[in-house]
Design a protein around this nucleic acid. Structure first.
Lengths: 130, 130
DNA sequence: CCTTGACCTTCCCGTTACTGGAACCTCTAT
DNA sequence: ATAGAGGTTCCAGTAACGGGAAGGTCAAGG
């Protein structure tokens, strides 16, 4: 199957698929005309990648997860470790963003948002005491 | 004052300050020896930038916020609009991350994490039904 | 006066995970 | 023969810096 079909079936853009081949995540065959030729196994792999990326795993995590996926003798503990680590990073990010959100919501709430120049948001960025 | 002092007082790394000069956010004077020379106004600006970046505003947002800050005739509505937009983006990000977190927490919870290969995390990435 | 070490400078490359675009080739249908 | 839709490679750009090299400058100590 050509790249466009693989893209539609996996949910990944063709550009992304080419990129994944570039960095060695998939290695589709090549037809006589030089076109990439994807079979079901490749498609399966691409779908796996789409899922993992969708859950926010980095490319390097994906590479490791793929290896574990293909290793029938894997220890589920290895998979879990990657996921757990990633989960922790996500939770950190969330915490950081929530702190920002609270401050911002506060500021937006306090600011009149009219034609006058007085602005608690500016004051805050300036470091002025609330 | 030299860049290191400016860095310490503003909380920004020297590299970042140079970068900000590069992209036109600050324009410190130059001493005879070619060293950057920061005065209080520059420092104030750098602190402003540190605050804004700390709240997650993009460099472009910072550029606009700086302009508004320096415009005594600004409308606080303009500032508020930028902050509100940014707040919305942050809330979107949080929502996305929370969805990931829930799925991941679920999977991590379900996975035995032992030496056996059976792994609900892999199953999920594979697209296998729960 | 010389040296050492801490600064400073510019410049270029690498990061993440792609995306856009140019230049060019191939296939199918009319 | 040609048009249009697909394919290919390669190059550049994104955000916001950080690392590191090569080299200039300054203050203190011997």
């Amino acid at each position: 199957m050509n790249i466009k079909d693989a893209a539609e079936k996996s949910g990944l853009p063709p550009k992304t698929i080419r990129y994944y081949e570039d960095i060695g995540l998939v290695t589709p065959d090549r037809a006589a005309n030089g076109y990439r030729d994807f079979d079901v196994a490749h498609l399966h792999k691409l779908t796996f990648l789409a899922q993992a990326r969708g859950l926010g795993f980095s490319i390097e995590d994906c590479r490791n997860l793929l290896a574990l996926w293909e290793d029938q003798d894997r220890a589920s503990g290895d998979v879990r470790a990657i996921a757990k680590q990633h989960l922790a990073e996500i939770e950190n990010k969330i915490a950081g963003l929530q702190a920002m959100r609270e401050t911002l919501a506060d500021l937006v709430h306090c600011c009149a948002g009219d034609d006058r120049p007085d602005c608690p948001i500016i004051d805050r960025l300036q470091g002025k005491a609330q």
